[in-house]
Amino acid sequence: MLVYAPAALLFLVFCVRVARERRKFSNAVILGLAALCGLAAWVVQLIRSGSASGQAVAWAALVLGALSILVLTCFLFSNGLQMVRKEGRSPTNLLSLVAALAILAVVALVVMAVVVRTPVWVGVGTAAGGLAAYLAFLFLCFVCYAFLYGRQRVRRKADFVVVLGSGLVGGSTVPPLLASRLRRAQAVHARLAERGDAPVVITSGGQGPDEDVPESHAMADDLIAHGFPAGLIEREDRSTTTDENLRFSKAIMEKSKPDYRCVIVTNNYHAFRAALTARRTGLRGQVVGSPTAAYFWPTATIREFAAVLVAYKRTNVAICLLLVLGGVLAWWAQRNGS
């Protein structure tokens, strides 16, 4: 059982860190490393057993992995085409298609490296495989931890409910995506009001160049139209990004109540990144998500993951350069060994 000790230790570290602060991407990475160590320990035990069943399981795992890549690629292609049909051909809506093409490109490079085995192809295949494995690991960590983060219960007491804005339709109409945030905010507000004083709802969002009114004003009007008391709404109408949403809302809350606690409402695909941003801005509160249309979720999740990579760009660039260096070393070793 000692072979599982690293996985158990990493999982213990994960639990301690989550108890102290849930809003860290490093929590996701540590959980992923714990799962990876556990899987590696299981494979080692299978190899040591030398039994036919162990070999069968190992081959089954390889086949399952290959099928998973195939299914994922087909799913991303299908989702990308659906996004283009329903949402248009903006660069963001093409992310699923780009991801599918990237997977095919990596598979092709690795296969060429194995088949041709020239120094150049070995180097390129090694670098491409390493980069793909690294990004795939981070993406799985992101998705799994974001799912776990989204399952947490709303805190028992809060002074404010902050609703993050998004674009308006026709310059003044709240779209379904934003409407789902507002309905979730109303549900959270009602639950908190049952436990004590009714919190203030802050609608957060400025006016874009193609919008007739600030998003926060349209959001407030929508809440009032759905029976929410106008006296419990505060409008933050200067922000244009998630970071500004949170910083400007934080200033409003600190001015009203320095020791505030809040609940931030956004869509479920955006909740974890919003939580990371809230931690960086020093905002005291948790983030909860509202439902998102199923077809929209894959592309939105890829976009959120890309934003997290950019937020930690120094670390990611350093690791990617090391993986590229590994490809160069593989090329050099193949060249001097042949």
Rank of each mutant, 00 (worst) to 15 (best):
Y4N: 06
L9K: 06
E21N: 15
R23I: 01
F25T: 00
S26I: 08
V43M: 11
W59N: 12
L64M: 12
G65R: 05
L67R: 10
C74A: 15
Q82L: 15
K86I: 10
S90C: 07
L94W: 05
A99D: 03
L101A: 14
I103H: 03
V107M: 09
W121T: 13
G129T: 01
L131G: 02
A132Q: 07
Y134I: 00
A136G: 15
L140E: 03
Y145D: 00
A146S: 14
G150S: 02
G150H: 04
R153N: 10
R156C: 10
F160M: 10
V162D: 01
V163M: 03
G167W: 10
L177F: 14
A185S: 04
A185Y: 00
D197N: 11
P199R: 03
V200C: 12
E211G: 01
V213P: 12
P214G: 06
A218L: 08
A220D: 04
L223N: 09
R235P: 08
E244T: 05
L246V: 02
E254R: 13
P258Q: 06
P258T: 03
Y260Q: 09
Y260S: 08
T266K: 08
N267V: 11
Y269I: 10
Y269D: 04
A278Q: 09
V287S: 02
V288Q: 01
Y295P: 00
P298Q: 08
A307Q: 01
V310H: 07
Y312K: 04
T315L: 15
T315N: 12
W332N: 09
